[in-house]
Design a binder for these strands. Structure first.
Lengths: 218, 218
DNA sequence: CGTCGATCAACTGACTCTTGTTCACAGTCT
DNA sequence: AGACTGTGAACAAGAGTCAGTTGATCGACG
């Protein structure tokens, strides 16, 4: 399915208006693109999250000649699917027939439509979201939501639980989002922060040697 | 950025109508989700493509206990970023100031909403406008400067002819259902052969314990 | 119709994937 | 608008999977 077909499919949710569908699609994509480009992770519950990932410089190989060359650090977009999307794609969960087919007030340009979608009309279709029965998802062993708080009491995992004082990545001061009430430094969007917790058993500085001399390990 | 914030950002493209923004977002995501769930690849030029990938059964390890267990075949969603998105995220390319500020026309339904919209849009516009850049980003073609990590192998260039170019694509028969309406037969975007390539050079013994015949069940 | 984006090849290293636990966020109710 | 509750998400760790890269070509997109 290419972009045109996607817009065509979307149009059914915009009263068949392809312009509105195209606009919606591009708005969403463009917004996500901009946010990701800014380095902001875009997390969409139930779908997944887009984020910018920093790829360190590394040695790559020209598949044609086999020559090794160093590619410098770059940023790449990364998408990780959310739990619900995975469940749906894997077939464990099914989507409702039509989540909210009726646009609330997205009447393209017809004032009449807006009039039609009076305040009360929304109450009908709007509320029903994916509140379906307790889907038994879990393709196999994956227990859905069994809390079972009782059993967790005795002897938890010995290893030191994650200390609240996380690593302090010197990345960048995360500019406060819209809601500034958040705790600072919580984010730490960096990938594997260096130094971590310094496990005594092994200290594989995996990042360090990677960039240096993959050709000659010794 | 969470979903709410994304909707808020989107609202600026829908005249501040958050409902319309939410609807647009959910429509797009839901449509993509459904298409992917059906197994149809959703390719959006310039952004990326979503597709369902079949993951073969394999032996996995429980990180806590270390026990080996067999995970059965499953489908997972996969997203691959497009060229433009990569370029933007990497900083090689800049987005135009505002793609299309004016939506087709989303009918706001009440004056109250309009008033709110106005207020919000003012603040929003303030920050967005500041980003106004000359844009006009000349199509830097496909080589936006950064793509030159190495200067063409000073002396490495292989002899007369490089690799033996293309070989006959003697892959497997395209036993694919190809639900696409207009999917060209030639394409045959079938996945990698499950059995992988079994070149004689590789010792079969090495592969044996790998995944297909993982020794014995614990 | 013109231009550009996506695909494919082989090899390798970076990254994903598993279960279980905890936390904070998201969604919904009041 | 505020608060509660459900739950998505991150972490751990080892092993295996797969994505990345250059260049040419086909087909998509405008």
């Amino acid at each position: 399915m290419n972009k045109s077909q996607l817009i065509d499919a979307l149009a059914t949710r915009f009263e068949g208006n392809k312009k509105a569908a195209a606009h919606a699609l591009e708005s969403v994509l463009d917004t996500i693109t901009r946010e990701v480009a800014k380095g902001e992770k875009v997390a969409i519950t139930g779908f997944g999250s887009f984020e910018k990932r920093v790829r360190e410089a590394r040695w790559v190989r020209n598949p044609a000649t086999g020559a090794r060359m160093k590619s410098k650090k770059t940023n790449v977009p990364k998408f990780s699917a959310g739990a619900e999307l995975k469940a749906i794609v894997s077939g464990a969960k099914k989507l409702p027939a039509r989540a909210a087919a009726r646009p609330v007030a997205v009447a393209t340009r017809t004032a009449a439509a807006a009039k039609k979608t009076a305040t009360k009309s929304a109450s009908a279709a709007k509320k029903t979201v994916t509140k379906a029965a307790p889907a038994k998802k879990a393709p196999a062993k994956k227990a859905p939501a069994k809390k079972a708080p009782a059993k967790k009491a005795p002897a938890k995992k010995a290893p030191a639980k994650k200390a609240p004082a996380k690593k302090a990545p010197a990345k960048k001061a995360p500019a406060k989002k819209a809601p500034a009430k958040k705790a600072p430094a919580k984010k730490a969007p960096a990938k594997k922060a260096p130094a971590k917790k310094a496990p005594a058993k092994k200290a594989p500085a995996k990042k360090a040697p990677a960039k240096n001399a993959p050709a000659k390990k010794a």
